[in-house]
Design a protein around this nucleic acid. Structure first.
Lengths: 208, 208
DNA sequence: TTAATTATACCCGGTATTGGGTATGGTTTG
DNA sequence: CAAACCATACCCAATACCGGGTATAATTAA
């Protein structure tokens, strides 16, 4: 199930998208907001897989919102939704971590395609968008290292089946610190517990 | 570290083996008993990797003790230690789950070799023992399936990162039942927590 | 057809993990 | 240099897990 949050100050458009997605069995809208601040609140609460956000919004604009979302939840995919094809806006929100850019005057079914594409880990830019000025890595893999040095070390130890207190001993640090790192990783990676974190560690075979 | 428990009603022999193993850095004696009942108690308490047991013992003989140990802790390796090379005794204790058979009139260093061999997952029979009547599988892989059907199913789900309550929902059964299965598996496999169980599940890639 | 095993479900007390915080120094970097 | 980021360490309340039990019905094996 692809969970989606929408931020858009024109309620009519929100309603339209809601209508469009209503009968898509693999997509579920978990919240919508009319400004950036409300979007952030929804994202923190629901942690959707995909965020579809307008760029021009009250309180917090879409670019800043994207930056904030990607900082707290690097795994959440953001799609920008804008009236105009402005090179500067495309550049800025992509650098902020967005995975796609849609135009409001394009057919609505593009929304559907874009959501599925970014949820699958790809990027999706409206055909009308000139992306030539974006480097290939920026579009497809804008990911810097998500985890910090300590976090990676701790994840490695978790992958060895160590418990939190064993890790704390090995690293000569407090249990609370290891717990904090573990919790930050769970948040950053969008996981839901030590089990999934261990799974992630073993699957990635320490390539993170 | 290979942890070892010894059961032998002649204390002098226990002392001798203690002395022998004292300077082996990779082997540690975690307990010794003079009868089968005391052995069981030690095994339950310390859960050693290897048990070295006499066959003729007060209260519970070595064969019955082996059966009981292997039932509760299939991962614990048992080496029989006997005065005589009796085919029937060799057959019975091997069928009970023992991984090796030593003779008391053999050089003491055989004990060392046997412990390391069985700890590594091999079998070890004294050279004087005629093992021709034992089938190859009986000697090297006397293991029937350690885990039951439900246990294997639950282990698979654990391997997918599911929590206990998620598994209970999926199987339409009580959380307490899933917990019981999980705990039984941890005991049977000699693990120490859900972390290691998950590790085991992923490592064995569901070949259990 | 008994005996053993399995699956089910619950008890207890104790420890670990979770998911939110806050806070304080260092480091890095624009 | 100020803003970000990182590592550190702690708080809290709620939930999950651990490692022992017991018990009962159903199924399987000897």
């Amino acid at each position: 199930m692809i969970t989606v949050a929408i931020a858009e100050d024109h309620q009519s458009l929100v309603d339209g998208i809601n209508l469009l997605l209503e009968y898509e069995e693999d997509i579920s809208i978990v919240g919508s907001a009319n400004d950036g601040e409300a979007l952030l609140a929804i994202v923190r609460l629901k942690q959707p897989k995909v965020v579809l956000t307008d760029i021009k919004m009250p309180k917090i604009d879409g670019i800043s919102a994207t930056r904030l979302i990607k900082k707290e939840f690097p795994h959440i995919k953001v799609i920008a939704f804008s009236m105009f094809d402005q090179e500067e806006a495309v550049r800025q929100i992509t650098e902020a971590g967005a995975s796609g850019y849609l135009l409001k005057n394009s057919p609505l079914d593009q929304v559907l395609i874009a959501i599925r594409e970014v949820a699958a880990g790809h990027s999706f830019y409206d055909k009308a968008i000139d992306t030539s000025f974006l480097s290939e890595e920026t579009k497809t893999a804008p990911r810097k290292l998500i985890l910090s040095k300590s976090e990676r070390e701790i994840l490695k130890l978790i992958g060895q089946g160590k418990t939190t207190s064993e890790i704390a001993n090995l690293r000569f640090t407090a249990v609370s610190t290891v717990e904090k790192h573990r919790k930050n990783m769970i948040r950053k990676l969008g996981l839901s517990g030590k089990g999934e974190l261990l799974r992630y560690a073993l699957e990635k075979k320490y390539n993170f």
